[in-house]
Amino acid sequence: MTTVLESLNAALHAALQADPRVHLLGEDILDPYGGAFKVTRGLSTRFPDRVLSTPISESAIVGMATGMALRGLRPVAELMFGDFVTLAADQLINHAAKFRWMYNDQVRVPLVLRAPMGGRRGYGPTHSQSLEKHFLGVPGLTVLAPNNLTSPGALLQNAIADEDPVLFVEHKLLYLLPVLEGTEDSLRDWQLTLSTPDPYPVVTLRFAGADTASLTLVTYGYNAELAREAALRLAYEHEIFAEIVVFSQLAPFHLAPLYQSLRRTRRLLTVEEGTFSLGWGAEVAARAAQEIPGCKIARVAAQDLPIANSKTLEDGILPSVDSILQAALRP
């Protein structure tokens, strides 16, 4: 069994091993600490010249990575917490993401910015958020989120190979989960379809041997786990069969596999951990409404509140299996 953390760590080892242009930079990423979430563990020992420990300077980390990328290197930068991406927003929006188009396609900026996001660990209002929605729809920026259905490490390696900037959003609760790809036991209830060949695959899960599904859950990242559990309960407790479409590319929006599912189910429920208003699900819903006329649409997301520290409050603010069930059962 490989965890998501091990998969990502192995991918960074492989990328540094394979390509001398790859450089890592971030805060506290050196051994023996190896990064706040240990994704960079072992790398500075093996590649001391190419793993750079930075001061607490998120703007400069992303700016430096942009300069390095412009001049032929392959930087992979880490934000200690994804919440700090706001400190680098100008670098992403007005610099890294803009340069290719603004300079008339004469430059490319192949950088990856890794950002651990998400709550449910009691870190409170500034260390628990899913801020990726603010970076969706930024022209020139690809936003990715690994899940544990397919290899997170492969996704990261494809991101590093991308010629354009990538914001790579890792939900913290994924790190210790096993990667399920190739472990049929864990997915025995499900028939898994992948959009291939696709560097950033979309997974469609359909209930094995079930009647026609009447609902499509669409989600990304860790919340695919919640969607899976909710779908199992819908099936066993309510005899409602759902398909689950799990995206690893959040932006730009390429939703074809979702539309395929919706043509079967004609009912959409978006699930995300970012706040409700103007989120990923809102854009997905709007596009689905245009593409699939008559499709019923609902959204589950975090409440439009900062994320509380106390577990009872945090649980109420973030989406849950129960809130997905409630939304799915609403007539």
């Binding site: 703007s59 942009t66 001049r71 670098q91 007005n94 610099h95």
Partner: peptide, 21 residues
């Protein structure tokens, strides 16, 4: 670029790349 100060870390990154190379 037209953002005040925005490219100053980028220039440092460029300098790092030239130093590495």
């Amino acid at each position: 670029n037209g953002i005040q100060g925005g490219f100053t870390p980028i220039a440092a990154g460029v300098a790092l790349a030239e130093k590495v190379k």
